[in-house]
């Protein structure tokens, strides 16, 4: 029985601790209730939560750089957190926590729109402004989308870059090296790449799924090069598989014969662009994307923009147009040998 008494005492202690704590800090609880009631932000700092798809990869770190810059300019408290493994369900859980903490704006880069939709709707119901950036969410889950590129333009942009580098009349095989078979974004891009490839003379030989694993990406790249003698190009469409594929081409001594293209920040791919393995890197200005997102968040928190607004003033970016509920950043960019050194992100 002794052990049970011990256990009961411990449980009792917890039961006592819970109300004890809430009473401990009256000033703090008052502060929270103040934050939960959504008085227009004036006297206090606006709190904006920026949620990337994956935290800790260079792409989103460069977005964060821009976001920080804007936050300093505007005097905003910026919270930057996201799942390090890119699990969209963890994104949803973070949104739920921010909803309870009562931030003013949540900016979400949904890794899978349907998964986070529920949490985003709840946040809106609690009076928090929700916008999406980098990738769009479902319609009713957000008020604005900071649009840098749609899946359509990314997929077609990749294929066009490859066709331009190879010459439009080139025949032969191409391979896509993706991330996981379940990666929502990559799958969406592949869906738009397929029709674009079908219109060209290139044949999609296979799609490999190495996961977010650099060794597997490198290995898969090596294997497809030995397997398909008529291989002309490889699309590396994740931050891991793009450099992996480029490295595989170099190690197989096929630099220049098998071209690699994909999405990446310029800094990560500079060395491959200079050796000629990669001729085009497709992306947009990620620093500006983060910068614009925070400006939109601020404008929304101070009610500067609402449904129907057509332009927004975004600091050093000047005026940006709003089409419907999409804030347009501009088109996708193609980095080549000539211009890649001008960018540092």
């Amino acid at each position: 029985m002794n052990r049970f008494v011990c256990f009961c005492l411990a449980s009792l202690a917890i039961a006592l601790a819970v109300p004890g704590c809430t009473n401990n800090s009256p000033s703090r609880t008052a502060e929270t209730s103040g934050e939960n009631s959504k008085a227009p932000a004036g006297s206090r700092k606006i709190r904006v939560a920026l949620l990337p798809k994956i935290k800790g990869i260079s792409y989103f770190s460069s977005c964060y750089k821009g976001a920080e810059e804007a936050a300093n300019e505007l005097g905003i408290e910026l919270i930057y957190d996201g799942p390090t493994d890119g699990d969209p369900r963890k994104q949803a859980e973070m949104i739920e926590q921010w909803t309870i903490d009562g931030v003013d704006v949540i900016c979400v880069a949904p890794n899978a729109p349907d998964v986070v939709a529920g949490a985003m709707k709840e946040a809106r119901a609690a009076g928090i402004a929700v916008i999406t950036w980098d990738a769009d969410g479902t319609n009713e889950s957000r008020s604005f989308f900071v649009n840098q590129a749609s899946a359509q333009s990314i997929g077609e942009g990749l294929v066009n870059a490859m066709l331009k580098d190879l010459g439009p009349a080139t025949e032969g095989d191409v391979v896509i090296i993706s991330a996981d078979a379940t990666s929502a974004n990559q799958n969406a891009w592949i869906e738009t790449m397929k029709p674009a490839l079908a219109r060209s003379k290139l044949k999609l030989a296979t799609i490999k799924y190495p996961g977010e694993n650099a060794s597997n990406a490198l290995a898969d790249g090596r294997d497809v090069i030995s397997k398909y003698p008529d291989l002309k190009g490889i699309f590396g469409i994740s931050t891991v598989s793009f450099p992996g594929a480029a490295e595989a081409v170099e190690q197989s001594g096929k630099s220049g014969q098998v071209l690699v293209t994909g999405l990446s920040t310029p800094n990560d791919m500079k060395k491959f662009v200079h050796t000629g393995t990669v001729r085009s890197v497709v992306l947009w200005n990620t620093v500006d994307l983060g910068y614009l997102t925070i400006h939109v968040a601020k404008a929304l928190a101070t009610r500067e923009i609402k449904d129907g607004t057509t332009t927004i003033k975004a600091g050093r970016l000047g005026e940006k147009s709003i089409v419907g509920d999409n804030v347009m950043l501009g088109d996708i960019m193609v980095f080549t040998k000539d211009n890649i050194d001008q960018f540092d992100f």
């Binding site: 819970v18 704590c21 401990n24 800090s25 609880t29 502060e31 929270t32 309870i100």
Partner: peptide, 8 residues
């Protein structure tokens, strides 16, 4: 409870 207001 001490660090995060309203945690409990």
């Amino acid at each position: 409870g001490w660090l995060v207001p309203g945690f409990l």
